[in-house]
Amino acid sequence: MSEHTQSLYEAVGGIDVLRRLGDTFYDGVLADPLLAPVFADFTRTHIEHVAVWLSEVFGGSTDFTDRLGGHQALLRAHLGLEITEAQRLRWMELMTEAVDKELPDDPALRRTVIAYFDWGTTVAREVSADPAGTDLGDPGPTPRWGWNGLG
């Protein structure tokens, strides 16, 4: 059992920190020859959507579900991208660097957030192998990630 009493959302510092995390991360992604092609249609709005997603996953507001289509929309956005394991691992390297730069200096927090990204990128890679238009079924509600993982 974790000694942390705050939600992950509170522990990371809220939506503004999640936006900074996205800015730092995507600056690296867009400059990376392995990952930039995956984000060929990238717009700065993507950073806001990711921040809103992470806010909800980490225990903040439900704005992603309420305004942006929830879990189904996130999964659908990855269909047909054909993300490779090499791309997923590079994504993780750049995100780990961004987490180390932007999140509070709390090793347990950083490990927990990185564990979420490892889980989430694995799901995204699996979903991306299916062609666009595949019926995802009902993936259920937006997942919630806490100090002890998915829950």
Rank of each mutant, 00 (worst) to 15 (best):
L18H: 01
R19E: 14
R20A: 09
G22I: 07
G22M: 04
G22W: 03
G22K: 03
T24G: 12
F25Y: 11
Y26M: 03
Y26N: 01
V29Y: 02
L30R: 10
L30T: 03
A31I: 04
D32S: 02
D32V: 02
D32N: 09
P33V: 09
L34H: 06
L34D: 07
L35G: 01
A36R: 13
A36W: 02
P37S: 10
F39H: 04
A40G: 10
D41Q: 12
D41M: 08
R44F: 11
T45E: 15
T45H: 15
E48K: 14
H49I: 06
H49A: 13
V50E: 00
V50H: 00
A51Q: 04
V52L: 09
W53G: 01
W53R: 00
S55F: 00
E56I: 07
E56S: 04
V57W: 00
V57H: 00
F58Q: 07
F58D: 08
G59N: 06
G59H: 05
G59E: 01
S61L: 05
S61T: 15
S61H: 11
T62V: 12
T62P: 08
D63E: 15
F64W: 05
T65Q: 10
T65V: 08
T65L: 08
D66G: 06
R67K: 13
G70W: 02
A73Q: 10
A73W: 09
A73R: 12
A73C: 11
L74F: 12
L74W: 07
L74Y: 09
L75S: 04
A77L: 07
H78Y: 12
H78Q: 12
H78L: 08
L79G: 01
L81T: 13
L81C: 04
E82A: 15
E82P: 00
E82W: 10
E82L: 13
E82R: 15
I83A: 01
T84F: 02
T84L: 01
T84S: 14
E85T: 14
E85M: 11
Q87K: 10
R88V: 05
L89W: 12
L89D: 15
M92V: 14
E93W: 01
L94D: 07
T96C: 09
T96I: 09
D100Q: 15
D100E: 15
E102I: 11
E102R: 12
E102A: 09
L103W: 07
P104L: 11
D105C: 10
D106N: 13
D106C: 08
D106H: 10
D106Q: 11
D106I: 08
D106G: 08
P107T: 12
P107C: 04
A108F: 01
A108Y: 03
L109N: 00
T112K: 00
T112H: 04
I114V: 14
A115P: 03
Y116P: 02
F117Y: 11
D118C: 08
D118G: 11
D118V: 13
W119C: 02
W119L: 09
G120I: 14
T122L: 07
V123Q: 06
V123D: 03
V123R: 04
A124Y: 08
A124H: 09
A124E: 13
D130A: 15
D130P: 00
D130W: 15
P131I: 07
P131C: 05
A132G: 04
G133Q: 06
G133L: 10
T134C: 12
T134V: 12
G137C: 03
G137P: 03
D138G: 09
G140C: 04
